[in-house]
Design a protein around this nucleic acid. Structure first.
Lengths: 238, 238
DNA sequence: GGCGTTCAAACAGTATACATTATAGGCTTA
DNA sequence: TAAGCCTATAATGTATACTGTTTGAACGCC
């Protein structure tokens, strides 16, 4: 039943870093079903290495909030509505400022990449290709975020954004929402092109509010933290 | 010359967690000189356990930014002026909002603790006891931060604040600055008592700006990231 | 038939041994 | 005397074995 997730080693740095990258990318691509159990010894066996590097990588991912470590294996966290609201609150505080920075620092090459990503997103939305749309959306994000010179800021944003990846996967595959998102990206892109930090700030604020609202509307099944039900409150500390 | 840092085990959870807590507290108390080398096997020997739990703990601290891991031991990071500015930028974005939350959620017991911490800080400042002042300041912070219901927000703040711990150690031991800090704490405390979220937001904003300015004034020796000189851009020292 | 107890399997935690790598210091040679 | 190479050492990276704990299932008793 547990199809082996198909991890493969990427040749860069020590084993722990390779495994870490591999698993994180797999998570970021949304290829892991929530509740899926990740067992160190299994992954190690598949990669032909020992448990320790895998264990290190898994624990790092737990510390970064990508996984939760239970007494019985590592799994993807199941977010409650409260979790999502908390994460979005932090994003609302950080991302507008970061966008304002990016409006100042994005160079010609960056803008070109950004434009390409935007066009790709538009094309994907028109074609109704959710996966392609997701990729374009990620490229757009990563591009402007990479231009932010405050690394701590951009890395914090990236991490929190990854934590609500399930949100993105859900909203980005919803056809009517795609149009809204493209409109938001377009507005932000325009601010970047004009190097207008204020506009970038405002539009990013609006964009995130929109994203949160859309998701909340789309997600009746998600429970709050102390409701009964399937979802696990994201307690992770080992 | 390397006196053994006197780690001792705290009885809570598994070994990794114990060691992690121990080392982090040691760092937070400012008992580790920058450049001090932490070697897993040494700590393990002192604690009478094996390398692995210690290694895990050290790597976790590296991931959280408390330490830097080199090919030759773990050491405390040496912050550049740019690093400090970056961290303060994130804190300026997050802490006012968190303070506003705390103004809403602090209960009577919390306010009592807060008041006690404030009085302790005043007493310590009057007595010129920098260490006691530091402790009171930490208690004050931890108290209101603990009342913030958004755990992700409060934990992110706590981490970034810890990263500029060297800043606090420096500013808090500077006599004239102590008065300024007490005044700021007093203003924030008043907002909390009145449950005035707006005032808490504004005063926290002011407080952090003040703290950053004071430190920058106090620290000519700190260089920017690509200046030459003593400070290493956040790499370990050989 | 339901509940409780026990046993087994699975998996994380820990320990120890071995491999690898980088740095520092010394030695040799120009 | 200085510079470059080589070797030794110290510290991390990796592997494997063992232990303890938790969970789930099966059997027996009430």
């Amino acid at each position: 039943m547990t199809k082996p997730i198909e991890f493969k080693r990427v040749g860069e740095g020590n084993l722990r870093a390779q495994v870490y990258q591999q698993i994180r990318l797999t998570i970021q691509r949304g290829e892991l079903a929530p509740g899926r159990k990740l067992v160190d010894v299994d992954i190690a066996a598949q990669l032909g290495i020992s448990r320790m590097p895998v264990r290190d990588a898994l624990m790092q991912l737990v510390h970064e909030g990508y996984l939760v470590g239970t007494t019985r294996g590592f799994t993807l966290p199941t977010l409650t509505a409260t979790d999502v609201a908390d994460i979005f609150e932090v994003r609302r505080l950080l991302e507008p400022r970061a966008a304002a920075h990016a409006a100042r620092t994005l160079d010609a090459a960056g803008l070109k990449t950004l434009t390409a990503a935007l066009q790709e997103a538009e094309a994907a939305a028109a074609a109704g290709d959710a996966d392609r749309f997701f990729q374009a959306n990620s490229a757009f994000r990563n591009c402007w975020l990479g231009a932010v010179e405050n690394d701590r800021l951009s890395q914090t944003i990236a991490r929190f954004a990854d934590h609500v990846l399930v949100v993105r996967l859900k909203t980005l595959s919803h056809q009517p929402t795609q149009a809204v998102i493209v409109a938001g990206m377009c507005a932000i892109h325009e601010a970047f092109v004009k190097r207008d930090a204020v506009a970038a700030y405002d539009r990013m604020t609006h964009f995130i509010q929109n994203a949160e609202e859309r998701f909340m509307k789309l997600s009746p099944p998600l429970q709050h933290s102390n409701d009964e039900g399937e979802s696990i409150p994201l307690q992770g500390r080992s």
